[in-house]
Amino acid sequence: MSGESGIGQRLSGLAVALGLVLFLGGFVWGAVVYRPYTVPTSSMTPTIGAGDRVLAQRVDGGDIRRGDVVVFRDENWVANADVVKRVVAVGGDTVSCCTDGKLTVNGKRIDEPYLPEGSPAETRRIPAVTVPEGRLFLLGDERQGSLDSTAHLTDAAGGTVARSAVSARVDAVVWPVKGMLGRPTGFETLGPLSRPGPLGTIELMIVAGAVLVLGGGAYGPVAKRLGRSRPRPEPVGVR
């Protein structure tokens, strides 16, 4: 029995050690890769509501694709504040609205399931705009209440934002818990979409680590309780 107990204790210790590595490693990885933001306005409703807490992956502006929800800073838009909008066109694209009630990019009508239910894209008229290379055209999902590229069409940059202004790409809404953002499949015909960040893997590491730590830590008390509950063998008498 003592041999079995020793093996169990060693496995328990190994489980706790591995669990701590996974648990802490997940948090460290998440802190390095992601930044939390609170979105102050309802311009991205229903994808992101006013006051929602999001996690955004730190990315280079050159990695941004159509359909991404990004965090950027442009002094011509809002001074000293981050802005969250959706990229609908990139350098070289021609964007306009609307054709049969849909946003048009490079002559293709874009399905936008993330818009508020019953709200057509044509609530915001956009003349044909050709996006300069190295820049992005951005809209809010709530088109009626969003101060986005359409509000800056008369600026020198024609409402576009430099890729270098982007600091992060939103992966998930964590409070209230809405989970990972849906993939913007309406843009697939125009080119590759961004790949999801490692948030799912990080969550798995943290959960698996917690389970191993709790399971390994519980081994000792459970083993002692089971040991006490076993009937002791009766001593053998001498005849």
Rank of each mutant, 00 (worst) to 15 (best):
G107F: 00
R169L: 05
P116H: 14
P176W: 09
A172Q: 06
W175F: 15
L190N: 09
I64S: 15
I110E: 03
L190C: 09
T99E: 07
A56F: 07
C98W: 05
V90F: 05
R183F: 00
R58E: 13
G92E: 02
R163P: 13
C97M: 05
G62K: 10
G67Q: 04
P196S: 01
M180T: 15
G118A: 04
Y114E: 01
G67N: 00
R65N: 13
D68S: 07
V90M: 09
D171S: 13
G67H: 04
T150W: 01
F137M: 03
V71Y: 12
L115G: 07
L55Q: 03
N80D: 12
E188Q: 07
E112A: 09
S167Y: 14
D141L: 10
H152E: 06
P132N: 00
N80H: 14
E122G: 12
P184D: 06
K85Y: 06
T104K: 01
D82H: 07
R58N: 11
A89W: 00
G51A: 09
G61C: 04
D111C: 06
L153A: 08
V166E: 10
V105K: 04
V129R: 00
K108E: 15
L55I: 04
G92W: 03
V78I: 10
P116D: 07
R125L: 13
W175V: 15
H152T: 13
L193C: 03
L190K: 04
A50D: 11
S96V: 01
R195S: 12
G51H: 12
D52S: 13
G159F: 03
A172Y: 01
P196Q: 04
L190Q: 07
K108T: 09
G118M: 00
V95Q: 03
T185G: 14
V170Q: 01
D141F: 07
V174I: 14
D52V: 13
V69T: 05
R183Y: 00
V87M: 02
G179M: 07
S164D: 11
A56L: 02
D155A: 12
L55F: 07
V131L: 06
S167L: 10
D63T: 04
R124V: 15
R65P: 12
G61V: 02
G145V: 12
I64T: 15
T154H: 09
R109Y: 03
Y114G: 11
A79N: 13
V70P: 14
L103V: 02
I126C: 01
V88W: 00
N106Y: 01
G134W: 02
A81G: 15
G158K: 01
R163S: 12
L147I: 14
L190F: 00
S146H: 08
I126T: 02
